[in-house]
Each structure stands twice: as C-alpha cells, then as structure tokens.
Design a protein around this nucleic acid. Structure first.
Length: 152
DNA sequence: AGCAGGTTTAGCG
DNA sequence: CGCTAAACCTGCT
C-alpha cells in the first residue's frame, strides 16, 4: 500500500509533526520549523493528535503496531502506554514494573520509540531530573507542560 | 565481541 | 554539593 504523510503544526510545541502511514500507522516525528510546511490531515491519528495538542484529548483510540520490535521493547512501550495523562514515572520505576532492573535499557527502548506522544515516552523521566528525549528535550518539556496544564 | 544508551548509585574531594 | 566511575541490561554493528 502506498505510504502517505500528514503534517500538522503543534502550537504548544512550536514544532511541526509528521505522521507517516499506509494502511496503518508507521511513525510519528517532530520536524524543525525551519521552513514553512503545508499542513495536511487525512488520517484519524492526525486529528486525534491535533486534539491532543489542544488539550482536548487525553487518550488515543488507535493502537500503534509495535509487533516488529523486540520482546523487551514491546514490554517497555506497553508499560509506557499505561501511564496516565499528566503523570510521570522514572526509568527505574518503569523497569521495576516489567520485573527488570534494566533501567538503562528502558531508556534505550524509549529512545527508539517510533510513536512519540501516542506512546507517552515523555512521561518517563530520570530520577533526579527530566532525563532525555530523542525528539528534542525542549519538546519533552513542552509536552509535560501541556499535560500538566490540562490535567487539573 | 565490543560499544553506547533518554540511568543510577556509590564514592571522593 | 558537584563530579567521576562502575554497574545494570538490551540492541546494534
């Protein structure tokens, strides 16, 4: 099936978001707003994401396909999926939840997360601080601010 | 086999 | 308190 790409601008993140999909969701990415992009909305995921960025949506109805990933990564991502809106846990806490001490590996798996936001990897932080984020640390901060603002 | 990663803890100055 | 160093575990080359 032909691959299609949706583009929307996420106001609170000050960044563009790219959604790739064919018959199902392929990936979600953040793009630097270095050039003006034309927005495009066709997939359901795109609309849900947009609502999320507006603070209207706290839960996504679709489930991304992560069957291609390793067993461990799937565990991590599924566990991440359980974190409630506006809530945050630490890498070590997440590791504990899947009965492992691989907090280091947890970070690695989240970093390769193909679906940021839908799989809320930004809700996982380091014990003493905010931790890191593949898509850009500033994005992570803004996502957390967004959720905190709309969770109360 | 070896390395690096979105960590963590312990140890030292 | 701030910094370095070693240990955890998994995925990638």
């Amino acid at each position: 099936m032909k691959k299609t790409v949706d583009i929307i601008f996420a106001e609170p993140l000050d960044s563009f978001v790219k959604i790739e999909y064919d018959d199902k969701l392929i990936s979600i990415d953040f793009i630097k707003p270095d050039k003006l992009l034309k927005e495009k909305r066709t997939h359901q995921a795109t609309f849900e994401l947009e609502e999320y960025f507006l603070g209207k949506r706290k839960r996504f109805t679709f489930v991304p396909d992560i069957s291609g990933l390793s067993q461990f990564q799937q565990k991590v991502l599924k566990e991440t999926l359980k974190i409630d809106y506006g809530k945050i846990i630490t890498y070590s806490q997440l590791a504990k939840n899947i009965k492992s001490n691989a907090y280091r590996a947890v970070g690695g798996s989240l970093g390769k997360n193909p679906f940021p936001v839908v799989i809320p990897c930004h809700r996982v932080v380091a014990k003493g601080g905010i931790g890191g984020y593949s898509g850009g640390l500033d994005i992570k901060k803004k996502l957390l601010e967004l959720e905190e603002k709309h969770s109360k």
